[in-house]
Nucleic acid binder design. Structure first.
Lengths: 211, 211, 211, 211
DNA sequence: CATGAATGAGAATTCATTCAT
DNA sequence: AATGAATGAATTCTCATTCAT
């Protein structure tokens, strides 16, 4: 009982630190976020950060892993709540949009290569975990497209899992751009972010669906 | 005459510095590139960098601008050398791939929002220029798609300039992923980067072309 | 009774802490041994160390004192077990060697000045005790040399207690060097540590003994 | 010319830093001397220290090497200025005393093993130099004793170079003690440091000289 | 114009010590 | 009594920037 209480408390503090870090990493970038900044934002002393994380890298790793796991949940939900391909496809698209909104830093993590050589001895465990969760995500998305094949909705010449990867990449680019060039879309083209995204997802759907 | 001689010389030095910076920024990232590193790579003393650029940010800005301009040239070339939509489309795709290969740092710049409020008084001039070149690029790409409409190759419901933007975004995501997950594509899926890109561009082409 | 039980327990814990500290101080040096290290090695929590010692300095002081006391015992044993000067002399020499081997950290303590002004008000009690034990050691060694005088084995011009001090100092230097330059002695001169020490003690014996 | 001027200036600054470091290292120990302390003492900003030395270790290495070289000069002087063994012997003894007075930190360096594995690839050059100067010092001292043999002043059973090593070690111990227990010698035994040293050197001389 | 020299400000990290429980 | 948790102060080292020459 006491043990669990302690663990709960530790998790609470780690979460606070992670949330503060996520916020700052997103706003200013990892490199421009100092441990001092994190400490201030999280409401702890700098030294306390080192009680809960071995170093800055471990904070980064923890955030990334958490983000990947959160996203895996998002994706799995799409598959559970929707049974046919088209629903799953659009649900996944919007899941990604939501995910980017709620965890903008995680979103970037998911799509960035891990700058770590997984074959080296001293690579921290967390990076293996990150890699593995990434794999699981890929598998889940593949399942959606396989459902599409089963339903005979996709073009015959679609190559899986390649196409799922391309979908993945395009969606990333689209969401990213809808964020980065948000103002431009509104002012320059008179389209809201939401409309832009919806139209994009439909356009992409055309690239794979059977005529 | 003398003035112009001076200017030519100044441009020469600025270019040297920019080339050195580009190389290092790409290899190690902006944050991990010190002014010392740039000075060493460019063959000047550190203080000399400050003769030609007000500070590090201005170097970054100058690189971005140069990159955008270089890319604008790429795009314009596509339009000049190819006259029909399909040729222009694929030429543009591969132009982007080439561009990413030759100026990987510029590539990122082109697709990132400038973290600067253009409406503030003190915003350096360079950022306005960057914005303007970006606009020109968009216009050029739009022209390609308008050619597609003219040739009656695109689906009737295609909305321009929205679709050109989406294309833009997707291509970015795809190229980025072909880089970042390069190893994964080869080992995990047995596809070369080149094949992946070609297949992607074709898939994307389907999303817009008429049946 | 209860009081004494408590005291016994307290001594037990203090001893554990001291033993752990000695081990670590020796292996890594005082400066490179953290209170965390000591706590881990001793099997207590860091805060507990502060129950038994006011601070790190007090641990160091306690170790020093213990070491001096241990050495005093060594010296007294030499005097008890050997009755003639020559035996006592060599026994003392080898006692020092043993002592250095078993308590290398204490060994250094015995020969280092305490960096504390004994006349200041706030100087902790332990430093006085250290000083006093040092005095006792000197007295015991002097006794050995006085035995030498009594046996008429020493040169007439030998000045006591000066000579005992010099002996003391030389032996220290020799043992220290046999440790520090151990490799050099073996590789460069082909002499084992043991042989070096024996020869040294004999050479030194010549410096005091009558012809 | 300009080059040499520059070099002279750099050497000047390096010397300032070294002198400040030596003073502080001696007073407070290496571990208790921060780069901040050195900067303050030397009259430079902390960052400037890193202009002239790569890091703290390099300062330590430079000091040690300088100290060893200075001492080698001392020893060579003894051999040049004095031609017979006895003069050389005492001159060397007092050279050491002087050396310890003028460069107390160097003195300790000379007698401490270098905590560095000379066979590792990355070991800085300075440590090899330190080792080599140490060797040269040993050779010079050996020469003195060989002169003693030549003059037939030493006991027949004296083993060289072992005896020179023992002498070396004893003198170290004696000088060290005359420092560390200085107060004790004066108050407790009524002997000045100088008298203690002189008497010690004579006593030691007895241990090697022929009857 | 070009630069060597100098540095203030700040980065990550460590550690002895305190304190509420 | 024993300790988990928290931290202030310090440490080594880096780097963009300035300035006198």
């Amino acid at each position: 009982m006491k043990e669990s209480k302690k663990e709960v408390l530790a998790k609470f503090h780690r979460d606070n630190i992670i949330r503060a870090s996520e916020k700052l990493f997103l706003k200013n970038g990892i490199e421009n976020t100092s441990m001092d900044d994190i400490a201030r934002e999280a409401g702890y002393s700098k030294a306390t950060l080192y009680v809960y994380f071995k170093n800055k890298d471990e904070i980064i790793g923890a955030i990334t892993l958490l983000g990947m796991k959160a996203f895996l949940d998002y994706v799995r939900n799409c598959l559970m709540e929707h049974k046919d391909f088209k629903s799953q496809y659009f649900a996944l698209c919007y899941a990604l949009v939501d995910f980017q909104k709620e965890h903008p830093f995680y979103f970037e993590c998911v799509f960035s290569e891990i700058n770590v050589d997984l074959e080296l001895e001293e690579t921290p465990k967390v990076y293996y975990e990150i890699y593995e969760v990434g794999e699981e995500i890929n598998q889940e998305i593949l399942k959606i497209f396989q459902e599409g094949v089963k339903e005979d909705l996709l073009r015959r010449d679609i190559q899986l899992p390649l196409a799922s990867f391309i979908f993945w990449a395009s969606i990333y680019g689209i969401i990213r751009m809808s964020k980065e060039k948000n103002k431009y879309l509104q002012k320059g083209m008179g389209v809201s972010s939401e409309d832009f995204l919806q139209y994009s997802f439909e356009l992409l759907y055309h690239s794979i669906k059977k005529e």
